[in-house]
Computed example of a mutant assay.
Amino acid sequence: MTISYDVTGDGPAILLVHAGVADRRMWQHQVAELKSTHKVIAVDLRGYGDTPVAPKYSDAGDLLAVLEDEGVDQVTAVGASYGGYVVQQAASERPDLFARLVLICAPTDNVVPDDALRALWAEENALVEAGDVEAATELTVTRWIGSEADDSARDLLRRMQRRAYELQIPAGDVDNEEYPVTPENLTMPVRVITGAHDFQFFADSATYLLDRLPNGERKDLPWAGHLPTLERPSEALQLIL
């Protein structure tokens, strides 16, 4: 089964990989701008948007398959949150394919989640297990997007998270093969972006990466929460470029 993705525009390839509370719709503002100068590939990972869950799969493997199907031999990959983690896996597996990485509020291996994030996950899981998907969705909208987001961005996040629950809850347990992340082997330029109002775990992940990346730079956004491309779309676009 292939994953769903859009290809728009022409030029150097740029791959957009969404956050774990979103789908490829989170990039709509950036795609509208980038398509005039780039070949933009925006994917829906398994269990998000238009891509159903499979019993066994690899998110990183799916990204590499998309690039192969599109005949891409060099790409800039932009990953938000969990999408940034998947990008790290794919680039660690095939660093020759990736010209540049942009990791936005992304986790990584070997970093321990902070207590506040663990508490949020526990609260979400309790709501889902109780069958209160609407409350779990509102929890996402309340906690995962920063104060700079407008009502349309919050509504989009609400719709994306609700869709993810629709796909993932009936699927139950699945086997997602993760590739090891090796920051020392990511020799391409890597921009690591963090939000001052995000969970500490993602700042700690950025610090861990920057200590190990051969060619990394960090951008700390004093105004941002966890989803800066939704919170200030135009400003976040410049960070990507």
Rank of each mutant, 00 (worst) to 15 (best):
D114G: 13
T8G: 01
I41K: 00
A236Q: 08
A196K: 15
D211S: 12
R154A: 06
W223T: 02
P214L: 03
D151E: 07
A77F: 01
D73I: 08
A119T: 09
P113T: 12
D155R: 14
P170D: 08
P183I: 09
V190M: 03
A91T: 08
T140G: 03
V21Q: 03
R232E: 12
A135H: 06
G195P: 11
D23A: 05
V17Q: 02
G71T: 13
P113I: 11
P107F: 07
T229N: 15
T182Y: 03
P180D: 10
D114L: 09
P55K: 14
E70I: 01
L103Q: 02
L64D: 09
A13K: 00
F199L: 11
E166M: 00
Y208N: 04
L230E: 00
P228V: 11
T8A: 13
Y57A: 11
V78R: 09
P170T: 10
A153R: 03
D155F: 10
D115H: 01
F201Y: 14
L63E: 01
T51K: 02
S81M: 02
K56A: 14
D114E: 11
A32C: 08
H18F: 06
H197A: 15
D150A: 10
G195Q: 08
A54S: 13
E124I: 14
E33C: 07
R154I: 05
C105V: 14
R100T: 09
Y48K: 05
L221R: 08
R143P: 00
T37Q: 14
R163N: 07
P113W: 12
R94H: 11
S147D: 13
R212N: 07
R24M: 12
